[in-house]
Design a protein around this nucleic acid. Structure first.
Lengths: 229, 229
DNA sequence: GGGATTCTATGACAATTGTCAGGTTTGGAA
DNA sequence: TTCCAAACCTGACAATTGTCATAGAATCCC
């Protein structure tokens, strides 16, 4: 049995909460629920999107391929976030790829439901606008971090970010396990450099690892490192 | 004599064009025109903005101070752009400083005119949203460029960007003259590194200089350099 | 016009980061 | 279980970039 958007808790976290009952009903009737396995793509750079994806579960990386063949991860999106909005709003093909880093459950909402509501419901539009304003601010922060901090600082920051945004499991490991390559693509460095620094952090007792899994041991020192001590 | 927004050509380039006649009238009655000299700030990081600034003339850098004391320039805004929107929309203090790199003429529009229209005129909101979607896409590109390209490539790209966006003067120099420090803050590197690379470009015949002024001599080679040749 | 200040330029060096070239471990499929 | 491919790790080295020091050039201001 398909669940109804009207009852979906996820909605509370994103701009869909500003929709009226009728609008939501329309969305719910037209939406399609999909499951996406780890490693599969929701969409790829250059695709024309016919709608947006509302994340019910799991995590997706949003990345962009650079000229030298490396991906840069621009954002990690989780439960409650809506992907593909920018492309649908600007009526352009998307500039990012969305690939699952965990198994995901998403709702695909055809763009008509979105564009119609954008034109008719100012509250909804304003809500989307607020979200985008927030994303833009975050993007500015990323720019400053990448250009002004060392790789070491950026990796330390990434671990703290992962802890704060996705939490830890029972054994104290980061709940979101990224491959070393993904980590290097988040901070914008070579995979080998990332691995080296992870080893160094381990030696210094800042983190502990088990296979791919990473746990934070000395949060205070990591925070100091981010600020340049 | 103050000019009226209704007649302002600048408006055609930004989201204000989606305002109704009455809304524009209201904006025009409440706006204040200001001149800002080179080096002066429109606003600074952390300020709470009581309105937005519509640029009529001149150019402003939007920058953010990083922990190590260096500014990172995130965007150069020129005629037609509206600054401070994000802060007003999100009702947060601004995360960027806006400092004139050329003498400017701007119109300050109190936030009430904006927020009122945002709530009442979906077309206007949608127009603002489109602009912000565009800015966000550009920010993503900046992230990828900074993290995946060398300083040399980024400087080459910056020169091409300056030419394409601000043009050249009669003698073939870039119309927007930035200090070496500003250039280094655009590409996110040390001032000395920027200077060194500028010298190198000059030696190789890619550019020519006269004081601070820089002119592009071999656009093709610069473009090749950006793509990694 | 002269002095102070800021900006530009360059050298020398050190630190950071990337690349290449191996190894080892891990995880999943047959 | 066993094997294979992918992921992880490390060393050695080169390239890039940042830092410090210093000096000349341009600009501002009294």
């Amino acid at each position: 049995m398909e669940s109804r958007c009207e009852n979906c808790i996820i909605r509370q976290f994103n701009s869909l909460r500003a929709m009226s009952k009728e609008e939501l009903k329309h969305v719910s009737d037209s939406k399609v629920t999909k499951t996406v396995k780890k490693g599969e793509a929701l969409f790829e750079e250059g695709d024309k999107l016919n709608g947006v994806y509302c994340v019910r579960n799991g995590i997706s990386k949003l990345s962009k391929l650079s000229a030298n063949g490396k991906d840069q991860i621009v954002k990690l999106a989780t439960k409650g976030e809506v992907l593909g909005q920018r492309s649908v709003i600007a009526e352009e093909s998307t500039n990012l790829s969305a690939i699952a880093v965990q198994d995901m459950e998403v709702c695909f909402i055809p763009k008509e439901s979105i564009t119609n509501t954008l034109q008719k419901n100012p509250n909804f539009t304003l809500e989307v606008l607020r979200h985008m304003a927030h994303d833009l601010k975050e993007a500015d922060d990323v720019i400053v971090n990448i250009s002004q901090k060392t790789v070491k600082q950026r990796i330390a920051e990434a671990f703290l970010y992962l802890k704060n945004n996705f939490g830890e499991d029972e054994q104290g490991f980061l709940a979101l396990t990224l491959s070393r390559e993904d980590i290097s693509n988040v901070v914008g460095t070579a995979t080998e450099s990332a691995i080296r620094i992870i080893s160094e952090f381990k030696k210094k007792g800042l983190i502990h690892t088990s296979g791919k899994k990473i746990g934070i041991k000395d949060e205070r020192k990591l925070m100091e490192m981010v600020d340049g001590f």
